[in-house]
């Protein structure tokens, strides 16, 4: 197995996730795309852990999983709050930050 096959797979997943974050309008879908990005990072960590023969990558992959769980929890809570206030979770309607 090449190092690159994993890394490029991760890169592809990452870019698909980026596309999702940009293209999606529904907040839940954006959160799902972010999960794709986080997973691609994990693949990178584990590929390098194997390549370098070190355990550090595993440790950080686990940390990322935990952080992702926290992020989804808070993210969905935010989505719920937005939904409750505006009856919609379409992100393009949330343009209070317009300059």
């Amino acid at each position: 197995m090449l190092v690159n096959q994993f890394l490029i797979l991760a890169a592809v997943l990452f870019c698909i996730g980026v596309y999702g974050v940009i293209a999606r309008r529904n907040a839940v879908m954006v959160l799902m795309s972010i999960e794709l990005i986080l997973n691609s990072v994990n693949i990178n960590f584990l590929a390098f852990a194997l390549r370098n023969g070190s355990v550090d990558g595993h440790v950080f992959a686990l940390y990322i999983i935990a952080v992702a769980a926290a992020e989804v929890g808070v993210g969905l809570a935010l989505v719920l709050l937005v939904y409750r206030n505006r009856k919609s979770i379409a992100l393009d309607e949330l343009s209070e930050m317009k300059g």
Binding site: M1, L2, V3, N4, F6, L7, A47, L50, R51, G53
Partner: peptide, 8 residues
């Protein structure tokens, strides 16, 4: 990384 292989 080119053709670098993972340890088997």
């Amino acid at each position: 990384f080119g053709d670098e292989k993972l340890p088997t």
